[in-house]
Design a protein around this nucleic acid. Structure first.
Lengths: 338, 338
DNA sequence: TTGTACGCGTTATCAC
DNA sequence: GTGATAACGCGTACAA
């Protein structure tokens, strides 16, 4: 096992010098620096996280967490992942400060971001895809804050790491699932949430892309529910009535409950297959009622847990993740394997 | 942050005394012990894993790993999870020694177990469900070795932790999936592997249990393939020919490739829906060919990684897992979300 | 029965 | 530029 001490001995210098070289603190003669670097490389030196963690205990790194959709059970699962991880890492002196907001208001999120200025060492955020947000995140990165986007990513931003699902693939999966359930023919109604969220647009693109190889799959109509269950109910119901031949519903984002209630409210109508995302209590209820046979699941708990894990590795052990994205799979769930 | 040192100061004793109390080493006056215990509890003392890890560095704990089915791609994924985790934890002085075997011979596994006697501090094993194995594992536990069963559990054994899927639920999920794919009627052929593996029996039980609420689901025939692809091919083919009305195949364990080849070899036969487990290259090939539309996935990588994580937490940080079982979900995969 | 002292690997602070 | 030293929290050998 190779340590700083050992390198120091082998190079005939002190631990302090080796430390200065390895951590690029300067004030070292170029020749000795080269020698130490060579030796470290040759021996394959890896810093010991336990030592680092112990020495770094006085830093007490703070992780700021900003999540949209306060009170949304899906995000509650992300939060659970975060708090369980916080619990595991709290002993290393790391702590998380959580702030949630309701809806997707850019000003609100900017305000929360401002409140973290100079306070946090890392940031976990479910960002609104807005260029002002992207700019603030870039500023954070420039100030040395480690920025992790979770659940949804943001465009034109130099965030350090994204943790979440592949939304385009989520759409492809939804379409493929529909094919498995219905066969080669489908008359589809699409229920959109707000177009503000990057991922939801990508999901629809993925769905359409996968549809290209299915000549008898047709999108008959698209409605927007503005992330509101009542609108979702009303507009879905209207759509179903206007298209009596429609036999599939693709709910791209939120509003699943309202859409399912619309289906339930038309018991004499042709049977309809609903594809939707996330196993929150309301969708589980609809699975139990048989309105939903399947759901696509995004591992929310693991998203939160992994985000904290990445923050921990960076802040406490100074280890960057292998990749700047960590993609969790879109899983297909029945009631049985929830 | 509460440390041993702080507790010692507050109690007016030395760090050594506190250590003896907290680690139950004895040689402490009952009264002071009580006081220290009370203080530790009141302050919510948690040992710092970094300190523990550092102090434990001289121990160099060894994790023995015994896996059946050498060369099986499913187990290769488990191994990948183990080695990635080993890489992450290797810096703490922990190392893994991996031994694989072919098939399910009890003598072979006993031999491997013997070779680890007195060598390992923890054991990760994919056990054959045999009472002699159970007995040896109990001996290991009694000697203070931390025993983790992975992928399949074993009966009548005091192993410390099981990490893997719920096989009974896997069977239920398979049946529910078949219902989603075929509707309320199905004439099913079952392909069994070896009955030696506990999990595979449980899967069939789960399947049968879920079938109880489907009066028009019938198991027409059952064949065993002895974990051999050629037998699997032959016997499945014969079964399909004998039952022209059979429209579903439930492959409980290995032999998926052979069974699918049997389906392919009868192109003019009635279409058949195949339910099987694990996305290994051969099954993925069959998905691409369209023989398999879905597969049930067991998170093999995560099984291996989590097993090492639990071993690490125990050996290096002295932390036991929350539960003596860690159950990973049976996931349903299409080609799109593999 | 209790206290002291050292080492684990890293970082930070001095003094030279 | 460089080296010595203390500190982080824990475990333990040894002294009292």
């Amino acid at each position: 096992m190779v340590t700083i001490k050992k390198i120091a001995e082998l190079c005939g210098v002190s631990r302090g010098t080796v430390d200065r070289v390895l951590n690029k603190r300067g004030r070292v003669k170029p020749e000795t620096e080269a020698m130490i670097l060579a030796m470290a490389k040759q021996l394959g030196y890896q810093p010991n996280p336990a030592g680092k963690a112990l020495a770094a205990r006085k830093h007490k790194p703070v992780v700021g967490v900003i999540l949209t959709s306060k009170g949304n059970p899906f995000f509650d699962e992300i939060i659970r992942g975060i708090t369980v991880a916080e619990d595991r890492y709290q002993i290393y002196g790391m702590q998380a400060v959580l702030k949630t907001m309701r809806g997707y208001d850019v000003e609100d999120q900017l305000e929360l971001l401002e409140s973290f200025r100079g306070v946090v060492n890392a940031l976990i955020i479910n960002p609104i895809n807005d260029e002002r947000i992207a700019q603030v995140l870039n500023e954070y990165v420039d100030q040395g804050v480690y920025v992790i986007t979770v659940n949804t990513d943001i465009e034109n931003c130099r965030r350090n790491c994204y943790i979440g699902t592949d939304y385009f693939n989520g759409g492809e999966t939804a379409c493929a699932l529909l094919e498995v359930l219905l066969g080669e023919k489908a008359s589809i109604g699409v229920v959109l949430g707000s177009s503000r969220v990057l991922g939801h647009r990508q999901r629809l693109e993925g769905f359409r892309h996968r549809m290209e190889r299915l000549p008898d799959f047709h999108i008959m109509d698209v409605v927007e529910n503005e992330d509101d269950e009542i609108y979702s109910y009303d507009r879905t119901r209207q759509m179903l009535q206007q298209h009596p031949d429609m036999d599939a519903l693709f709910v791209v984002a939120t509003g699943v409950y309202g859409a399912c209630r619309a289906v339930l409210s038309l018991p004499d109508r042709k049977e309809i297959t609903v594809i939707a995302f996330d196993s929150v209590p309301t969708t589980v209820e609809m699975m139990k009622k048989g309105v939903l046979k399947t759901i696509i699941y995004q591992h929310p708990y693991r998203q939160g847990h992994k985000a904290m894990d990445v923050a921990f590795q960076y802040l406490v052990n100074d280890i960057q993740p292998d990749s700047s994205t960590y993609i969790l799979k879109n899983e297909i769930k029945l009631l049985e394997n929830l």
